[in-house]
Design a protein around this nucleic acid. Structure first.
Lengths: 390, 390
DNA sequence: GCCTGTTAGTTTATTTTTTGAACTTAATGG
DNA sequence: CCATTAAGTTCAAAAAATAAACTAACAGGC
């Protein structure tokens, strides 16, 4: 049972179920003391002591902060940044970025590769780029614990196969197994918004939240839910598809075939298109906000319409699911102007008055790495929390 | 470890964690063979064999069906109906019904008690009615594993305290501990719609479903979600409050303070009120349907408006959460007429065309026992699946 | 500066739980 | 009737968890 008996292990996958559970709990609840961990896992302090010792000497866990209170201070245990590495790839941009992420979600290396629509070609490109990415960090190859791929589209419940992607022109493409076959690394694929959500949950600002929803605001609108500390994908992997909920009955036709979808009024793309249709020379949300602040009625109207629509959708989200937090992530755009204000007002005005103000709506600007980092965190999520229903 | 060493145990609560896990798995996935259970719990067949033997000789499990395939047939294990009993009480009706339910959700005894708004009085009434209820079934007292109470209002995340109930005029009433103190039985309280959902999950038609939503259609509209085989209550216990989502922007004022809530257009009460306002002499949805089938334009209009609203809300539910099933339960009313048809059409028309028809919408007429039976299943849910996040 | 109370974490012998591997049982299909 | 297949059992050996007594590290009072 002592760490010595485990010697120098090569890959991380043969941990006992208690060791895995400990990693899972720390991954979900953040750094904690042995005593707290023992209680939350329903184990004795004695058992905890041994499990923690083993994982520390394996280099997967480490002691971080010391917390002083009454009595002997407790020492928080956290994932060791060098304990495991993950690769994340985004198939959303061209060229496709690859990142190498450590166990704390820090990006420690970065590359790009050409994008293709052919899954075999993608797998080859990855296999080619991988060694170059891994050699930038000692031990990364030995401790590589998974590979994640983010793409725009629907993914099956095993995070293995892309059911449908308009952007890539795919239908039932088993990308995960193709890539795993070429590279030998455990591979998981995921929808872009869900990948970002997992990234925020594991390594970002939603780390302590058990129940929250992420809304990714970009040219399209994505959304993903965390329930009980786990990503909720929906029965067909379609949970969070708020972009195509009907927000303006009998509104403008949407590319999906319906009318009045949120996507036709409130996405960055829709806002820009509405501005162009009104003859405004605004290329971005920022410019439109500036125009509105100068009193341009057209600009104000567009921002009002978009903000109300997004706010109403968020109100529905709150009424339906009662999340502990709504986190809006955006690469472009601003939420401190009219658009954001109207959005917040509409959200508050359309939830039960008694519940208004109960659910924080936080906006967060993120950099261009989000998708690839999110993809890496999908691999981490599978490693830590596991694909299986608990 | 043999069952003999456990002798004649009085209460059921001192089971090992593996025994509890086994009950939980069977409670969630239904009857299964030892081999299947061993695999799904990550244990060896040998371990499974012993755990099952003990639980069978404790009278908690039993062998039911024999399934023939290639090789030796497998014997399904299921909860023994006499393995544990639960009491359920509904505070929604006057007089308040109490039921005694066995481990399979069958109602084996039934009583009523006067309703009160005073929690202490309620606890006394329960303590008084309990012995009479329990004596109707031998062993029920000894094997009583919990008590559940369903009420209209919000309940905290521990299912212990009523945060707010308009019907009862309550605010932060710790009913569970009051009742537990008076009766000595583990008590849990829950919102009525959530209680019904748990009843359907554990013992009803949603037993095999891991992810589904229930919509209870009555004078009010309730809703509850199951995610990953567990009731999802929301971060403040408010998940599923679809009655007050805005479905007709700037619609009629609602008693909640907003406008255009689903509750103002699609609840049974709203439908009856709309009919009265239009001067129709219809007292029930049935009569309104009859009137509509005779070509009464007013009746058709009302049913159309209500059906569209409910359908749109359900479409949102599908888009947001992608459940595997929408189960609409109703005591009164019908779903085979215009109202139901329009509802289904609206639901289909307002989900992503690609996803249309993927989520079954099932309607189910239930009897007057639902609330009390649901309440009993809340106790069973806590006993089997536990209150703790897994 | 020293004792006391308090809580964190460790040690070790002991108990409980799980496993591996060989075995028995109960069917199907030639 | 016999080979094949798969379910479930048995039992010795191994692994994991516990209880209880222990040491460690601090705060606060004197």
């Amino acid at each position: 049972m002592a760490a010595k008996t485990q010697k120098s292990r090569r890959n991380i996958e043969l941990l006992t179920s208690s060791q895995q559970q400990l990693l899972r709990v720390i991954g979900q609840s953040g750094p904690s003391s042995r005593t707290v961990l023992a209680a939350s896992m329903g184990l004795s302090k004695a058992a905890m002591s041994g499990i923690a010792r083993d994982l520390i000497s394996l280099g997967v866990l480490r002691e971080t902060e010391t917390v002083y209170g009454q009595g002997r201070p407790s020492i928080l245990l956290d994932l060791h940044p060098e304990g495991a590495f993950f690769v994340g790839i985004s198939l959303i941009e061209e060229p496709a970025p690859l990142v190498l992420s450590d166990f704390n979600g820090n990006v420690v290396a970065r590359r790009t590769m050409p994008l293709s629509r052919n899954p075999e070609t993608i797998a080859e490109m990855i296999a080619e780029a991988l060694p170059k990415l891994l050699c930038e960090r000692k031990d990364a190859g030995r401790k590589l614990a998974g590979l994640g791929i983010a793409l725009s589209g629907f993914v099956d419940e095993k995070q293995a196969s892309c059911v449908q992607s308009t952007l890539l022109g795919w239908q039932d493409v088993p990308l995960a197994s193709i890539v795993k076959h070429k590279t030998g690394i455990d591979t998981f694929i995921e929808n872009d918004a869900k990948a970002v959500a997992v990234g925020e949950k594991l390594f970002g600002s939603a780390r302590e939240m058990q129940n929250f929803s992420i809304v990714s605001f970009d040219n399209g609108i994505g959304c993903a839910h965390f329930v009980g500390g786990k990503l909720y994908r929906g029965n067909h992997g379609g949970a969070g598809e708020i972009a195509h909920c009907t927000i303006e009955p009998n509104g403008s036709p949407c590319r999906c075939g319906k009318r009045g979808c949120l996507d036709t009024v409130a996405s960055l793309k829709a806002i820009k298109e509405m501005a162009r249709a009104e003859g405004l020379a605004c290329r971005s949300l920022d410019e439109l906000e500036t125009e509105a602040s100068r009193g341009n009625v057209m600009a104000i109207g567009i921002l009002h319409r978009a903000g109300s629509a997004l706010g109403l959708a968020i109100a529905h989200l709150i009424q339906f699911n009662d999340p502990g937090l709504i986190l809006i992530t955006h690469v472009e755009g601003r939420f401190d102007g009219l658009f954001g204000t109207v959005m917040r007002q509409a959200a508050e005005a359309n939830v039960l008055p008694r519940c208004a103000g109960r659910t924080p709506i936080r906006t967060q600007r993120v950099d261009g790495d989000v998708w690839a980092r999110g993809a890496a965190s999908i691999a981490a999520h599978n490693f830590l929390i596991g694909p299986n229903p608990c």
